[in-house]
Amino acid sequence: MRQRRLGNSDLNVSEMGLGCMSLGTNEKEAARIIKTALDAGINYFDTADLYDFGRNEEIVGKTLKSVRDQVVIATKVGNRWNESKDSWSWDPSGAYIKKAVKDSLKRLATDYIDLYQLHGGTTEDNIDETIGAFEDLKKEGVIRYYGISSIRPNVIKQYVKKSGLVSVMMQYSLLDRRPEEWMPLLSENNIHIIARGPVAKGLLSDKMLEKASTTVKEQGFLDYSYAELEELLPALKDKLSPRYMNEIALQYVLSHKAVGAVIPGASSIQQLRENCRALNAAPLSEEEITLLKKLTKASTYEAHRD
């Protein structure tokens, strides 16, 4: 599988990573999916301390322990479960980050984290304190690099200006092209986008509208009404035939040099293999990319702007 250098780091990550949130808590099944990903050439695995109360990190760490020096492990911090574990609060403080990283290291069965990401962020946060904590951990060798997971333009701009982050995780797909507005800024600063949600909750998979939830049927998806989706999705499939839908989706996201990796989730080996097939297909032509941009909406973020 092709790899890309992530931002200004020395992390070479497979163009498709494995988003581990949907692995579930069945350790044997999750391990089978992770090992299938390894066999396919995937070396980048993304988890978070929030997922399954830390159980996700434990499974990822245990499964990857024997190949630790061959993989890139990314996790996230900032969302703090309450004692009853029925809700969480936001805590980007330096003290909490330095405490949480120790817990993640233990669960991941490793002594360093390749990419440590702030799992959100607001302009009300003490951003300098948060950056200071990440820089301290980097100096200590506890983390190699850090990034943020945020779609808020005003937050992203502050971190680009003040920090040494190498990546920004953002929801990005043909149905959510909002990150394209920020690609020039990120590219100028040698920061890569890590694209989550590339198949738009399954709408850009071959099942298309079969994956539409009740909410999508009633309210649409972002800037698209359900009626628009009924018209658009078959048109995408038809005009780019014989390509598969998830092939179109993943290849479109990766056609942008500002993207370091795409991380679709996989809850089954079949789903993972379909994504690998899509990724290994021929890249989109300039004509195909132009057509896709013409058919879809180039939206922008309306909230959280300066």
Rank of each mutant, 00 (worst) to 15 (best):
L232M: 10
M16E: 03
Y301M: 13
E286A: 15
G265K: 06
A258I: 04
S150G: 04
V60G: 01
Y44E: 02
D223L: 06
I143E: 00
G164R: 04
P184F: 09
I191T: 03
C276L: 15
Y145R: 01
I151H: 12
V101E: 01
G121C: 05
E181G: 05
M170V: 14
S163A: 14
D49Q: 15
W90S: 12
N154V: 05
A278G: 12
L18R: 01
K138W: 04
Y252R: 04
D10V: 09
K65C: 08
E29R: 07
E83D: 15
K201Q: 14
V101L: 10
D238R: 12
R177N: 09
R178A: 14
G147S: 07
H119L: 08
L284I: 03
P234N: 04
S163G: 11
T47N: 08
V168R: 00
T75V: 08
I42R: 03
S255F: 04
A30M: 03
T123L: 14
S66T: 14
R177M: 11
A235V: 12
M183I: 12
W88Q: 09
D46T: 11
D238L: 12
G94H: 09
D114Y: 09
D206Q: 06
V168G: 02
Q219H: 14
R277Y: 12
G147W: 01
P184W: 06
S187F: 04
A31H: 04
K139A: 14
L105Q: 09
M169Y: 10
S187W: 07
D52E: 15
A227T: 11
D49F: 06
Q117E: 13
R177F: 10
A303K: 13
P153L: 00
L50M: 15
E57M: 09
N280C: 13
Y112P: 01
V72L: 05
I113N: 02
Y96W: 14
I194K: 00
Y226D: 06
G54K: 02
S285W: 12
K28N: 13
L250S: 02
E302H: 14
T214G: 15
L105I: 10
E129A: 14
L292M: 08
L209Q: 06
W90A: 12
Q271D: 07
G147N: 02
Q271L: 10
Y224S: 03
A266S: 10
Y172C: 04
D206T: 08
L284E: 00
G132P: 03
M245G: 00
E288P: 00
K207V: 06
Y301G: 07
I263L: 02
R55C: 13
L108R: 01
K65W: 07
T25I: 15
E83A: 15
G19K: 01
A74D: 03
Q270G: 07
K217N: 05
D176V: 08
R55W: 11
Q158L: 11
K138Y: 03
L272G: 02
M16G: 04
S104Y: 01
V216F: 09
Y146P: 00
Y145M: 02
E58L: 09
Q158N: 08
G94R: 09
L295T: 12
D69S: 15
M21P: 00
I127H: 01
A227Q: 14
N26L: 07
D136R: 10
G24S: 08
D86T: 15
K62L: 12
I151L: 10
T290K: 15
I194R: 00
A109R: 13
L38W: 11
K211T: 11
P242R: 01
